[in-house]
Design a protein around this nucleic acid. Structure first.
Lengths: 354, 354
DNA sequence: CTGAAAGCGCTAACAT
DNA sequence: ATGTTAGCGCTTTCAG
């Protein structure tokens, strides 16, 4: 296929134009072009215009590598991703990653992905840092406290955490998190408002900070109405099978009429139990999950679920990144966002019919 | 918090060591260090060892920006991601992205994410290309043919497509794809083997190449057994609601005992209809989806689904990228991989009970 | 407000 | 097998 390409005089037709090309075309020095791009207000308006025209005509865009070398910044943000957990519902990262990419672009940054060994929370960071491949990191897996924080802190690596520094509330790094307790309070209150009184909890084991936080929302909402929680809670692993098992036991022993779960995965386990017993979610027993995963959105009759405001999280994370990378660096306080509740058929009759 | 950091003599404690630092320490020239890193076989083994020791001691890693500038390569691969479709089941990208990141790392590349306007298949590519931010692209959304191919081709931008060049089978760019027809043949045959004879199809509208490909697998399998397909097929949009509506109509008018769907999203629609009518998936009516999404894995009683070998796809994509970026570039033929079937409760009694 | 000079850290080409 | 020279394209001094 033959294609028309604007030829840049004196250069290979495929080589992108450089600052020098633009300068020549506009009849100014290279520095002036650089200023036109980075500090337009330094130029007289007519020169500026002439340079901008030349830039336009040549389709000039600054060479990243050169700029990065000079400014010691890559405008890249590293994000570590873990393997997708098969058989799990919570695909929260998907939504977060997209929001982060979108928001980063508006801040002139791009997101660089790297893989992590799930067993080693530190793997992968070091190389990128030492090779100056990224300016900063977004750290997401802070569920086990975050060893990254102290480690990255020690290397003076700028990073923003999505997740609170559970093990060290006084930590000085910027973080953004979603209030899990508020979310579960919301979920529980929603169920109580529907007339439920025996609302069970299925959550994670006690060593999970996030799990305890979410659970506290359930406890709080129950206590607020003067309802007992004894015997209504279960702590298991985050798998469908565990949710299934826990809900079966709870139904037998505590006769709850509703379940609040620490994750959509667990909630799906409850739906399994209900299906097994010929019970209908939303009619016979109400169920609420956490994360508003795609699963929650499409499973019949729709799983009510706590939805994290990931778009907002991304905005705050990028804001924090910009502060962090500014001169001088500015670190604001942690940001705690409030989730919402996506109500569907599993917790209301509304989902039935149409 | 006070931290011990190895001080590099003569430099700011935070500045990473450079080639020159290593050279000085090892008592060789900078070029020799460069060779030690990039062409170790050029060095005498004892010098190599000495240099490697110095590298080790200083924790030296080449500065990416400098290397990129010099070699005119970023070792970055651009991948455009689209917003997560809410209310949809197919989260195939998640798995693919992770595989790609893993495989790329082994090839010394990283994945750079950028956002795309779903309405403009070309958006975002240009800037990255002209600013030399990436060496190549992985193009995934080839479902509408791929305008990117001709566009990127015209700019001499190296890219590998995940997806066939449907509109131009003779296209000369490298591509990797999964045989959708084979997948649906597999799914249909699986159902026929269970004794089903009236196997319905719910797929996409005719203008979707991928949809037609998948559908042809169903047709093929049915014909092979001498079964009629008339009245058993429906073409709708890829939403849960459409799958629900289509399955309701088909059940009323054609009395199928099984459904093969072009996506898990549509299959979930079928499950909705079954739930509405008090029918049990896998016992009363069999259902098979496509993509083996998380939804398929966790919905009761488990949705049988065609699983794309995304890890393999990633491997082939990276292989193609390496060929493309080699000197001279080597473009192999398109690679077509065969999916497998993840069998679950929705198409067999096996899923029941435990 | 604009231009000239220097150098970021690295590697390709050549010289030894 | 190792060292020397030059320069990738840009921005940060510093002069004019």
């Amino acid at each position: 296929m033959e294609v028309e390409v604007a030829r840049i005089p004196g250069r290979s037709p495929t080589a992108p134009p450089t600052l020098a090309d633009v300068a020549e075309r506009a009849g100014v020095s290279r520095q002036t072009v650089s200023n036109a791009v980075n500090n337009p207000d330094l130029l007289r308006s007519d020169t500026l215009l002439r340079v901008q025209e030349a830039i336009e005509e040549l389709g000039y865009l600054p060479n990243r590598a050169a700029r990065n070398l000079r400014t010691r910044a890559s405008h890249l943000v590293g994000l570590r991703i873990n393997p997708v957990q098969e058989g799990t519902a919570s695909a929260i990262m998907d939504r977060f990653v997209h929001s982060l990419v979108e928001t980063s672009r508006e801040a002139g940054k791009h997101v660089l992905l790297f893989a992590g060994d799930p067993l080693d929370p530190l793997a992968g960071y070091d190389d990128l840092l030492r090779s100056t491949a990224v300016d900063a990191f977004v750290v997401t897996d802070t569920y086990l406290g975050n060893p990254q924080a102290t480690w990255l802190g020690a290397r003076r690596a700028p990073f923003v955490a999505f997740g609170r520094p559970w093990d060290n509330p006084a930590a000085s790094h910027p973080w953004v998190d979603v209030d899990g307790a508020a979310g579960c309070d919301l979920a529980t209150t929603h169920l109580l408002d529907q007339g439920h009184e025996r609302v069970a909890w299925i959550g994670w084991r006690k060593d999970s900070w996030i799990g305890e936080d979410r659970r506290s929302g359930w406890t709080r909402a129950m206590r607020e109405r003067g309802l007992a929680t004894t015997g209504l809670a279960s702590r298991v692993e985050d798998t469908v099978a565990s949710g299934r098992g826990a809900s079966a036991v709870l139904l037998d022993e505590a006769r709850p009429t509703a379940f609040v779960c620490a994750s959509d995965t667990l909630a799906m386990g409850v739906l399994h139990t209900l299906a097994e017993r010929g019970l209908v979610a939303g009619r016979d027993v109400a169920v609420v999950g956490f994360d508003d995963s795609q699963v929650a959105q499409v499973v019949p009759p729709g799983l009510t679920s706590v939805r994290q405001p990931l778009e907002q999280v991304a905005v705050e994370v990028v804001k924090a990144l910009e502060g962090l990378l500014a001169h001088p660096p500015a670190v604001g306080p942690g940001v705690l966002l409030t989730p919402t509740l996506a109500v569907r058929g599993s917790s209301s009759a509304v989902g039935f019919g149409s």
